[in-house]
Design a protein around this nucleic acid. Sequence first.
DNA 1: TAAGCAGAAATCGTATGCAATCTTTTCTGC
DNA 2: GCAGAAAAGATTGCATACGATTTCTGCTTA
Lengths: 237, 237
Amino acid sequence: MNIADQTFPAVDNANEDRAQAIRDQLRDAIVDRRLAPGTKLSEGEVGTLFDVSRTVARAALQMLSFEGLVRTERNRGAFVANPSPEEARQVFASRRLIEPGIAIAAAGRITPADVAAFKAQLEEEGRFIAERGPSARRSEIKASGDFHLLLASVAGNVILQRFMEELVARSSLVIALYGRSGISSCGHNEHLQILQALENGNAERASALMLHHIDHIEADLDLRVRSGPALRQALES
Amino acid sequence: MNIADQTFPAVDNANEDRAQAIRDQLRDAIVDRRLAPGTKLSEGEVGTLFDVSRTVARAALQMLSFEGLVRTERNRGAFVANPSPEEARQVFASRRLIEPGIAIAAAGRITPADVAAFKAQLEEEGRFIAERGPSARRSEIKASGDFHLLLASVAGNVILQRFMEELVARSSLVIALYGRSGISSCGHNEHLQILQALENGNAERASALMLHHIDHIEADLDLRVRSGPALRQALES
DNA sequence: TAAGCAGAAATCGTATGCAATCTTTTCTGC
DNA sequence: GCAGAAAAGATTGCATACGATTTCTGCTTA
């Protein structure tokens, strides 16, 4: 899979930041696995694809590098990140620390409008699970992440919200890389339960459910190191 | 206080990333309050000061903007961040979520070499507290932050470590802005207690002490909004 | 005197050019 | 036929150029 095979919607953003728009599109492509880990993202190609100069493309890649979705090597360029099992564990360890607290904060602030948004979100999530095929599976991973992002926005702490954006994006990548099959419907169920606890104002329960939910997501990964790290590295791109 | 009044050590970094070196120096200057909140950081001036082109200066400013130490406005430029009381509260809320967990992780991984590093660090911290004057006070804020960064590095999660780097930097800015006087020695004492708990392998105690410590730091801030937000904004630069 | 308004100056956003570095191909000697 | 060296090509790092936007300045006018 090469970046040149991708097609991206035109970047319209009349007067907004074009680099940011490109970053968003690339991030979606990475999280969806339309761009495989290890894929080279050359400044020239990205620029050509989005019809901007290398300057702008470079800024977008720098942003992704900050988020950990792209790894850059000096004088060599940018590549889609290929997180190791250890990195994957750290991502989930971070989420275990942060998300139960976010759930508690959200329980104290959730409004009826938020609840409605959650329900719409979960309904969409359910639709993707019903479907089959790799495209639906990608949409499902994305929708599942959106639940957590919505929760973070309800919690009302913009710093944690940004941390969660990074963690969710990296989780999606990790799930695409190391995920087994049957996780999905189970996760959906847990989302429903969490929402119910939030609706009832039961912060403790929401927090505990969230912790279990994260454990379940991680438990459904296969994080065993398959071969020696040397071989792994040699094959990685 | 203008950026042009600052002097910066030469950026020698033979073959490393120059933008990163500039970011580090600017970050230090911001955290130390040698650059006051609201100060304009124009690309041209930064470039001239560090003897690089605007391209490189711009990249450094972009990094600081990601970390929240600098706020950029389109077509207007970059300014040293001027965190509001609400932002300050969110910084500490984030730390309350993350740092107790970091303390627990660190308790399980700390080595004798780490303990020695902590002791050296705390001794230096003590020296700055003994001194008086604004320069010592700045060093003290910095040293206090370094304790938390050292702890994060011992915990062994690079993602959380990066989050903590951002949170500590923003905390230093907040303390410089909203801090009252007498916090210091108290905080130092608490650092010592936390280290002791870590040495004893008492993870729960280290975690609880850390939570209290963060509460104390925040309690020593004056986060009341002084005037209407409109006035505040009007005066901010 | 204060407000309004043009023109100038400064600053930003972006494209492009050149040197340095890395990668790939081709050539040479064994 | 193959290993190593040299050249060609591609890509990045950085500086600079130029149009667009904002800010400053000094003049005019009520």
